[in-house]
């Protein structure tokens, strides 16, 4: 079961070369760990010489090449809204390696960037030309057989995007929970179609749709967000893991959502 490394000139060719026992190498932070620990589920590493690290405006959104690293995101003025997310992924070395495309495949407790993209309702472009909304991408991720080429993130108004990572280790710790919210109309005092996503509250980042519903048409005051907090775990699938129990995650999810919405401490 000797490992083979196959390098292809284009992403499309790399995508075609993938098969049951192959994995695509992005930044390597997930794949190389599996290699180092002798993961027996694959024996071919597929690479592409075509690594798209560009960030550019495209229509209503911003297109991020899947090969863009967290450091690339931090270097992009267009993506200033996402800086708060990219900054909390790993330490500096990881941010120089971990890619936007790779983060989409990171299992809990990783995948904070994907959590943000889910709240932002980003679209995933596959190397074969298929386009998938984040939500369907994530729900089908386990069976995914392709390579992500890019992600397009809709623009959001100033102050409409909020993100928080809850970690016990500072400044760099893995998420016990991450939360992202897009709050249209936040400036007007009346929220529009809110989108809220939780990371590490299920096998993939998940939306808190009941809470979204409960916030629609409300303002950001203690009293008005209370109903949303009560239902914020509906549809989530928190589990026990090394970092926390399901019980604890359910108990504190409303607290952290409240702090995200109201701008609380910590």
């Amino acid at each position: 079961m000797t490992l083979a490394v196959e390098t292809y000139p284009t992403l499309r060719e790399a995508a075609q070369a993938l098969g049951d026992r192959a994995r695509y190498l992005g930044g390597g932070t997930l794949l190389m760990r599996a290699v180092n620990y002798g993961d027996q589920s694959f024996d071919r590493i597929v690479r592409s010489r075509e690594v798209d690290r560009t960030v550019r405006s495209e229509g209503q959104g911003i297109r991020i090449g899947a090969g863009a690293t967290m450091a690339d995101v931090l270097a992009s003025r267009d993506l200033i809204a996402l800086h708060s997310v990219a900054r909390i992924v790993g330490g500096p070395a990881v941010r120089n390696m971990a890619t936007v495309g790779g983060n989409l495949f990171a299992a809990s407790p990783y995948g904070d960037f994907a959590t943000a993209l889910l709240a932002l309702d980003a679209t995933v472009q596959m190397a074969d030309g298929q386009n998938l909304p984040m939500e369907s991408f994530l729900s089908g991720r386990a069976r995914m057989r392709g390579i992500v080429a890019s992600v397009t993130v809709p623009r959001v108004g100033e102050g409409e995007f909020r993100f928080a990572k809850v970690s016990r280790i500072k400044p760099k710790g893995v998420s016990m929970m991450s939360l992202a919210a897009v709050l249209p109309g936040v400036g007007s005092g009346r929220l529009g179609d809110v989108r809220i996503a939780f990371g590490t509250m299920g096998p993939t980042p998940l939306r808190a749709k009941a809470a979204e519903q409960a916030l629609r048409g409300r303002g950001l005051t203690d009293a008005e967000i209370e109903p949303a907090l009560k239902v914020c775990c509906d549809g989530l699938q928190p589990a026990d893991d090394e970092l926390a129990t399901e019980w604890y995650r359910r108990e504190v999810a409303p607290v952290h959502l409240k702090r995200l919405l109201l701008g609380g401490r910590r």
């Binding site: 490394v5 190498l25 390597g28 932070t29 794949l31 190389m32 760990r33 290699v35 180092n36 620990y37 590493i45 690479r47 450091a71 790993g90 330490g91 500096p92 070395a93 990881v94 120089n96 390696m97």
Partner: peptide
Amino acid sequence: CAQGTCGSCTVLIDGVPHLSCLTL
């Protein structure tokens, strides 16, 4: 660790820090 979680293997590649244990 060979997991990318300790940083002992940090090297600079083209001037920026990378974890050499996670670099193919």
